[in-house]
Amino acid sequence: MHRARAPFVRPATLVAALLAVSGCSGGGEPAARVPTPTPSGLAHYTPATGSPAPATSPQPTAPKECVQTAGMSVEQLTGYLKELRSTSGNYQTKGLTLDSSGLNFTPEDIKRPCEAVSVKLAHYWVDLKKTHEANVVSGARYEYSYTLIGAASHTAGPQDGRVPDTAPPGASACRGTVSVAYLGQDLSLQALPYDLKLVDTTAPVPVKVNGDGVLSAIYVSPPHPDSC
């Protein structure tokens, strides 16, 4: 008597059948494959539209070269300010000067002071008196007498510009003015010039004033000195 044998199924055939069943969904559509992430996918990341870009730090700018004047003596500061040149480009023009508007500070960039400097400014009346009339041999001669109007300290720099309230007083009939910017001890009347050139203009002209601390000096003549 023979027993019926169950049919023998090869393992490869069984695996193929299982794969066929698992590859089918309930609706008969093939199941979507899940992609395997790769490290290269990170390189393709794009920020969302409108997101701000990372802020970049500004490049530091090199500071302008300046001169430390805080610890200078009167002699050192006087020498430094006398040699300080202007940005005007004219030969030997100074960075700190006196003109009709007063003290002006316009030094070149590379040697300007790092901080403001204190400068004294004195104004004087110059009274004229004719002592000799002009003739065919010589011109008229005058005597000068000085009177101090006032002296005060003013701060100049480190920015460019005119120092407020430093303009010389206006000249009048037979009376001019001399203004002196200086450092150190106050000036004596004997240090002021007694050889002024009289001109028919009130435009200031530079004059020489004796003194180690003198930085700049100007003279404003009376408008009509011949009538004095």
Rank of each mutant, 00 (worst) to 15 (best):
E75V: 03
T155V: 03
A62N: 11
L128K: 03
Y194C: 02
T93Y: 13
S22Y: 15
A167C: 05
P47A: 07
V205F: 11
I110L: 10
T49Q: 11
G89W: 04
G26H: 04
D200I: 09
S40H: 07
A151W: 00
L192F: 00
Q59S: 15
P60E: 08
K64P: 13
P225I: 13
D195R: 12
T13E: 11
L198M: 15
H123C: 03
G176H: 05
G28Y: 14
S101H: 12
G176W: 00
G150D: 06
C228I: 01
C174F: 08
T147F: 06
A116M: 01
K208G: 01
L187E: 00
E65D: 15
T13M: 01
V119C: 10
R10C: 06
L189H: 02
R141N: 08
A140G: 11
A203C: 08
V207Y: 09
Q76C: 05
V126E: 02
V119N: 12
D212Q: 13
S88P: 09
S172M: 10
V214P: 01
K94C: 09
C174H: 08
K130W: 07
A32R: 12
P164T: 06
C174G: 09
L18A: 09
V214T: 13
V180G: 00
G176P: 07
P158Q: 10
F105E: 02
H132I: 01
R33S: 02
G139H: 11
V214K: 01
S227Q: 15
E65C: 06
L198T: 13
V209A: 03
W125G: 02
V21F: 11
C66M: 10
A134V: 04
R112V: 00
P35R: 12
P37F: 04
V21R: 11
T61H: 10
C24D: 00
P206Q: 05
G161N: 04
S22V: 08
A62W: 06
